[in-house]
Design a binder for these strands. Structure first.
Length: 531
RNA sequence: GGGCCGGUAGCUCAGUUGGCAGAGCAGCGGACUUUUAAUCCGCGGGUCGCAGGUUCGAUUCCUGCCCGGCUCACCA
């Protein structure tokens, strides 16, 4: 509901009134005056039911089949014609035609038609309980036998109905569902309840995560869990969320990546590790960014970024096949083909072709900045050469990379954990994978030279002091770990949310995060008393 | 933060070149024993986001603000 009423009465009749009450007045149940007409009616029905000795929220349920099971068994002929089944679900449609009614109920596995006959249920139960006291949205149990209607729909002929949970608020539009974007996110339960395609979308997301685990487990990777609360953050260029441990009097950061912990495990002797979990970055929210997002990182000893590229193709193609059944998908009208191999283009070449700028001809930040500004591109004065290159990438190249593509060989100063490419001064063995105009993953040959790493950390530390909020602090324990010898390795990180966007054909990250970060509702101040 | 678009019934949306506010669904009452967006008859439901201004009269025009979406900037 987009309205922002300010007068008290209007405010209290608004859907948000319950939040308002619970948050500011600590009154869990709004008074009768705050209810919508339809809520008022449902409360009266509730009272009537209670008066008739019916518990509207009974503690136990009788169920013999899920809806999917009963449909399957009936179709397969493994259900006796006169077998009594007990099904449960939300009443989502009701068509009353005199002494005979149809409806649909829906549980987590599917929906099924129910047929309710006055002569079967009994006139009292039919006229009062089924027709009057039940509402769309109520959770009910039905007991009956299976049959097929004239139109051929498998249907439960209802012998009895049990109320399992009374719904006190009306459902959104049964045909259009719920479309108000703010309501859909703030009350995701309503979105899910009203929009089956949204429910399906999060099943797709779950299948993605499971397929990734299947792949990595079968390849001999060990799944691990590393700290979310970290005394020193690192592993990415990002500003962290800061928190505090009261008993240790310790400042802690919510992790921005898992990288430094996972590579410690390579030192410890695990050759293949991965983690799937949440990262937190204290930055803007956009179509492609949420402050907390789900990341997969894996590290593999005795390989390099070429080996990781091969594995990335294999893993992503495997997941796409598992989730969608094929290697080609449609995303926002584009056909995207994940069949390996994917093009591998040097970053320098990609930028040159897209923007006409060959950054190798501008060996320092200042000259590159001039070249960019000469072409009318916004080039901040405080950006390093690497950051300027990154800007060229995201501005000119990234939006054009719809088909899966690797860009390889990145500037060293924005890749402080990646190994230098032999024969170069400021290029590292790093790649990023792009799909659907988005960066999907980022990987490199891991830097395992402790002294080089220390130098890079010190450089980062200087940038941090100089005001680069995305630079990371020096992690001396990580240097210590490397000093015991870390095997040569390749590492990989991928944004699961973005992968889900692609496979679920969505163009906003909010659509694949159940509860995306939203502005707080504090704008709804309690109304001041009328003067 | 800039630009563009939007906020009308519980939901989905029309509409008013300034003159009593509309539909479908949902709700309420009634009819109906094979419907499936059931159908038919009747009824209730609104501070048209908020506040000012112009006007005989503002939901409509103007200004400011709030909220949301898209987009640019910022930001992996």
């Amino acid at each position: 509901m987009p309205t922002r009423p300010t007068s008290a009465w209007r405010f209290l009749s608004n859907q948000r009134s319950f939040y308002f009450h619970s948050r500011y007045l600590m009154t869990p149940s709004p008074s009768d005056q705050t209810l919508l007409d339809q809520e008022q009616v449902r409360r009266e029905k509730l009272a009537r039911l209670r008066a008739a000795g019916i518990d509207p929220y009974p503690p136990r349920v009788q169920r013999t089949h899920t809806i999917a099971q009963v449909l399957h068994q009936y179709q397969a002929g493994t259900l006796d014609d006169d077998a009594t089944v007990a099904l449960t679900g939300r009443l989502i449609a009701r068509r009353v035609m005199g002494k005979l009614s149809f409806g649909h109920i829906e549980d987590g596995t599917g929906r099924i038609q129910i047929m309710v006959r006055r002569d079967v249920l009994g006139p009292e139960r039919y006229n009062q309980f089924f027709k009057k006291d039940l509402d769309l949205g109520d959770i009910i149990g039905v007991q009956g036998t299976m049959t097929v209607t004239k139109t051929g729909e498998i249907t439960c002929l209802v012998h009895d109905i049990t109320l399992l949970a009374k719904a006190l608020k009306p459902l959104p539009d049964k045909w259009h569902g719920l479309s108000d974007p703010e309501l859909r996110q703030r009350q995701r339960y309503l979105d899910l309840l009203a929009n089956p395609q949204v429910r399906e979308r999060f099943r797709v997301r779950a299948r993605i995560v499971r397929a990734l685990r299947d792949y990595l487990d079968s390849e001999g990777f060990l799944e691990v869990e590393t700290p979310i609360l970290q005394p020193i953050y690192g592993g990415a260029a990002a500003e962290p969320f800061i928190t505090y441990h009261n008993y240790l009097h310790q400042r802690l950061y919510l992790r921005i990546s898992f990288e430094l912990y996972l590579k410690r495990l390579l030192v410890g002797g695990y050759d293949k590790v991965y983690e799937i979990g949440r990262d937190f970055r204290n930055e803007g929210i956009s179509r492609k960014h949420n402050p907390e997002f789900t990341q997969l990182e894996f590290y593999e000893a005795y390989t390099d970024y070429v080996g990781v590229m091969n594995r990335t193709e294999e893993m992503v193609a495997y997941v796409v096949k598992e989730v969608t059944g094929g290697y080609t998908i449609t995303w926002q009208g584009h056909e995207i083909d994940f069949t390996p191999p994917w093009p591998r283009i040097p970053l320098r070449q990609a930028i040159l072709e897209a923007s006409g700028i060959d950054y190798d001809q501008y060996p320092d930040a200042e000259s590159l900045r001039q070249a960019m500004r000469a072409r009318g591109i916004d080039a901040p004065s405080d950006a390093s050469r690497g950051k300027l290159i990154d800007k060229l990438l995201s501005h000119f190249v990234e939006p054009t990379l719809i088909q899966p593509t690797f860009l390889i060989d990145y500037p060293l100063d924005i890749s402080p954990l990646a190994k230098r490419k032999p024969g170069t001064k400021d290029v590292v063995e790093r790649f990023e994978g792009f799909v659907a105009g988005m960066e999907l993953c980022n990987a490199f040959t891991e830097l395992n030279d402790p002294l080089d790493q220390l130098e890079r950390f010190l450089e980062q530390g200087r940038a941090l002091e100089a005001g680069d909020k995305e630079a990371t602090p020096v992690d001396m324990d990580y240097i210590n770990a490397l000093s015991y010898g870390m095997p040569p390795a390749g590492g990989f990180g991928m944004g699961i949310d973005r992968f889900a966007m692609i496979l679920a054909d969505q163009d906003n990250i909010r659509e694949v995060i159940l509860f995306p970060h939203l502005r707080p509702e504090t704008r709804d101040e309690p109304p001041t008393s009328p003067s």
